[in-house]
Simulated scan of single mutants.
Amino acid sequence: MPSPDPLALDPISDVLVSPGYLAGPGDSHSIFNALDLAPGWTKAVAFGTDTYYTSPCQRVRVANAAESFYGGWTVSYAEDPLGVPDWITTFDRNTPHEIVAAFTKTLVNGLHNNFADYLSGGQHYTGISSASLTARHRWEPVHGSRPFRTVSPDGHAAYQMRVGWLHEYDELLTLEKSTWRMSVGTDPVYAPSWQAFFSRYTPQHLIAASTAAFTDPTPVARALDHIPDRHRSLVSITREATARPNPLATAALARSTQAQAIHAPPRPTAPTTIAMHAGSRRQR
């Protein structure tokens, strides 16, 4: 009988991790691909590691500056392409890629008509807010907190909103003063593993798109050794229901004259739980 210990698996084995906000950043190819394929967007690579995208209207800049303080992705919008940004959103380098991709995909899809399709009366308008999403998934408000915040049922994720007046330029210059923030970790407020910041005028439907991915309880796919060590005791890990085929074995089977006579046993229809609180074989 196979060992239930996930460490008995190859470290690069694909597993499903829940909750997704603790799964680590994962593969960011989906973000790059969406921007690479966006019609009319331009791309520039600087310093060998930093990637910059510009929208056709020149109002949006997307940067993946790997060696910057926060790393990750920064998105800015300026009505005047040469002026001060109207809003800035930053996802640090450890933010799960599903959360970033939800934001950038919605941004790219709606920018051509200034998000009219996502506003009231538009074909993609849902009326769903970040507050309703956290409430739907039973996140609890922390009464009396400043900034106001709601916390996930496990206590390891927080969504907060700063209240009170602050000059808009202050939050553009200092991310920690942003109106909205997502944060995750063993102590998501004071010692977060990752953070995302949204300044006051970031369109609400973009924030809601990221919040939907942030609060989604569906497990996400990761390589086993990409789960952050500090989160191993906080997540549930299950084997993927369908293993990825081995390309060499598939090719050999196709060439075999006996291929038609081979009948593989049926695959399991549901994930098999490996462990709830697993240790790590690598340090990050």
Score class of each variant (00 low, 15 high):
Pro2Trp: 08
Ala209Ile: 03
Pro19His: 04
Ser3His: 00
Met1Phe: 10
Ala44Ser: 14
Ser28Leu: 13
Trp194His: 06
His277Lys: 13
Ala252Gly: 02
Thr51Trp: 04
Leu9Lys: 00
Gly20Trp: 03
Val142Glu: 14
Pro265Gly: 09
Ala261Asp: 11
Gly40Pro: 09
Gly279Cys: 05
Gln195Glu: 12
Thr202Arg: 08
Pro219His: 05
Arg232Gln: 15
Glu140Thr: 15
Thr49Arg: 11
Gln260Arg: 14
Val151Asp: 00
Arg244Gln: 11
Ser256Phe: 01
Tyr125Cys: 14
Ile88Tyr: 02
Val142Thr: 08
Thr273Tyr: 01
Arg146Val: 14
Ala34Lys: 06
Ala158Leu: 03
Tyr201Trp: 08
Ala158Gln: 06
Arg61Val: 15
Phe148Pro: 00
Leu166Phe: 02
Thr242Ile: 13
Ala101Gly: 07
Ser76Thr: 15
His263Cys: 07
Phe197Leu: 06
His231Gly: 06
Gly48Phe: 02
Pro228Asn: 13
Pro188Cys: 12
Pro203Glu: 05
Tyr190Cys: 10
Leu133Gln: 15
Glu140Ala: 15
Tyr52Trp: 04
Thr150Asn: 08
Glu176Asp: 09
Leu111Phe: 12
Asn94Arg: 15
Ser183Arg: 02
Ile207Asp: 00
Glu79Cys: 05
Val75His: 06
Val108Lys: 06
Ala44Leu: 13
Arg59Trp: 00
Ile88Trp: 02
Pro247Asn: 01
Trp87Leu: 14
Ala264Lys: 03
Ala8Thr: 10
Thr238Ile: 12
Leu173Phe: 07
Thr74Cys: 13
Arg222Ile: 02
Asp92Gly: 14
Tyr21Pro: 00
Ala66Glu: 12
Leu9Pro: 00
Arg181Trp: 05
Ile237Pro: 02
Trp41Ser: 07
Ala65Lys: 11
Pro85Ser: 11
Arg162Tyr: 01
Tyr201Ile: 09
His137Phe: 15
Thr95Tyr: 07
Leu224Pro: 00
Thr215Arg: 06
Lys177Ile: 10
Pro19Trp: 05
Ala208Thr: 15
Thr257Pro: 05
Ala131Ile: 09
Ala78Arg: 09
Leu7His: 01
Arg239Lys: 13
Tyr159Gln: 04
Ala78Leu: 11
Pro85Tyr: 14
Gln58Pro: 00
Pro245Leu: 03
Thr238Gly: 04
Ala63Trp: 03
Pro247Met: 02
Glu171Gln: 07
Gly40Tyr: 03
Pro268Lys: 11
Ala8Ser: 06
Ala23Val: 04
Arg61Trp: 05
Leu35Ile: 06
Arg267Gln: 12
Leu35Asp: 01
Ala38Phe: 04
Ser256Tyr: 01
Leu206Pro: 00
His124Thr: 13
Leu253Asn: 14
Arg162Val: 01
Asp14Gly: 04
Gly127Met: 13
Gly144Pro: 07
Asp36Leu: 14
Glu171Ser: 03
Ser3Lys: 00
Pro4Asp: 03
Val15Asn: 04
Thr186Asp: 11
Thr49Asp: 09
Met182Trp: 06
Leu16Thr: 08
Pro192Thr: 06
Ala212Trp: 00
Gly164Tyr: 04
Pro247Ala: 04
Asp225Ser: 10
Leu206Val: 02
Val220Tyr: 03
Asp92Thr: 12
Thr272Asn: 04
